[in-house]
């Protein structure tokens, strides 16, 4: 699955079908072959199927994602129990340190996301990275704030991201570079996203992986897990029947 570019964070307003189709069309034009669309609860299963059929015609692979924003670790656990079997990608937007720590150590969480517009609420430090390294969570960095912010705010954000990227690389926590956009104008080509990622100290080779191999691997892993044949890692049902 190499050479497939993926954007795991599109945030269209699903009630606005024009905006949704504009985002999906733009993603295809820019060279993406896999995109994750964020659904927020309460969501309708029909919405996901409708979007899938729209993308099937365009030969764009679409995956369902949910952004959890729990206030406490217990709320996070409850949400994970409820949504893990429903969505292919689960991201946790960490608004507090307790939630960030719980999300990092829970193997049901795929992506750790932090509020980009307030650098004081980014809790990705060494302790967080150590927990994430022992779990399966990756650090997700959205590019939208880099495009929207200016001056001092952008400088602060770049500085924070540089530190976080270095910590993540030091602890071998995968980094996923996503757009995080709801406006098609702010979407960029995968190579341009990788170039933007080099601004906070990621080398070009790794930045390219952060928009291709790493997100694709997350989706592939979760799709395998969500299959009916899956029992546990390395164990799957081959055949059912009396003679088994």
């Amino acid at each position: 699955m190499t050479g497939i570019y993926a954007d795991l964070h599109l945030r269209p307003n699903l009630k606005n079908s024009e905006q949704t189709s504009a985002l999906v069309t733009k993603a295809l034009q820019l060279g993406y072959r896999l995109v994750a669309v964020t659904f927020s609860p309460p969501y309708a299963r029909e919405e996901i199927e409708k979007l899938r059929s729209l993308c099937k015609e365009a030969k764009l692979d679409i995956t369902s994602r949910i952004d959890l924003q729990p206030k406490t670790p217990n709320e996070l656990l409850a949400a994970l129990r409820r949504f893990r079997r429903e969505f292919e990608v689960i991201a946790v937007l960490c608004w507090s340190k307790n939630v960030a720590r719980q999300a990092a150590k829970d193997r049901r969480v795929d992506l750790l996301n932090f509020p980009s517009f307030d650098y004081r609420q980014r809790f990705f430090d060494k302790a967080e990275a150590e927990l994430a390294a022992s779990g399966l969570a990756s650090l997700e960095i959205d590019m939208e704030p880099l495009l929207k912010l200016e001056g001092e705010m952008r400088i602060r954000l770049l500085s924070t991201l540089r530190r976080e990227a270095a910590v993540a690389k030091g602890f071998h926590v995968p980094i996923v570079v996503s757009s995080g956009v709801s406006d098609a104008f702010l979407m960029r080509k995968p190579r341009e996203m990788a170039a933007l990622a080099t601004l906070f100290g990621i080398d070009m080779e790794y930045a390219q992986k952060a928009v291709s191999k790493i997100p694709v691997a997350i989706v592939k892993r979760n799709r395998e897990k969500l299959e009916a044949k899956f029992v546990a890692p390395g164990i799957r049902v081959i055949r059912r029947g009396k003679d088994c």
Binding site: L186, R188, K189, R191
Partner: peptide
């Protein structure tokens, strides 16, 4: 090249009108 590519990606408006530049 990569520096300029990053700068081009950061363009969101030209002459105060919304725009994006793609390589």
């Amino acid at each position: 090249v990569e520096q300029v590519r990053a700068a081009l990606a950061a363009i969101t408006e030209i002459g105060r009108k919304p725009a994006a530049v793609h390589v």
